[in-house]
């Protein structure tokens, strides 16, 4: 019932399924149903940015031309980054979400 009160009703909602403003996908956290997460291994990474190119959710975080981690709010855990990583032995490995959580606190946004 609380949810019904806080969301706009039909009289105030923008008509015709219009969402005002651009870039609204940023607000939609798609990472919460991920079953696997990418684990970054910084010492192996050559910063070729192949993962950044292939990531369908723009979830590879890059600063000054170097990979610094992943945006776990939006990463859906598809594993394309791991598949495309050209480094021998991989600088990205996919781990089960429930197993990966403790080690990953500093790897991503939160």
């Amino acid at each position: 019932m609380i949810e019904k009160k806080t969301k706009p009703g039909w009289k105030t909602l923008p008509e015709g399924d219009v969402i005002a403003g651009g870039g609204t996908a940023q607000e939609f956290k798609t990472g919460d149903w991920r079953s696997k997460r990418p684990i970054f291994i910084p010492e192996k990474c050559i910063h070729c940015l192949t993962c950044w190119v292939y990531c369908p959710d723009s979830a590879i975080m890059v600063k000054d031309g170097k990979v610094i981690g992943y945006d776990y709010d939006h990463c859906k855990g598809c594993g394309i980054c791991e598949h495309e990583c050209p480094v021998k032995g991989k600088a990205i490995t996919m781990s089960l979400e429930r197993e990966a959580k403790p080690e990953c606190k500093e790897g991503g946004k939160k």
Binding site: E3, K7, D17, I19, A20
Partner: peptide
């Protein structure tokens, strides 16, 4: 005035 049109609209909207 940028808008998104035809987004997924589930049980809540």
């Amino acid at each position: 005035k940028i808008v998104t049109l035809g987004a997924l609209d589930l049980t809540d909207y």
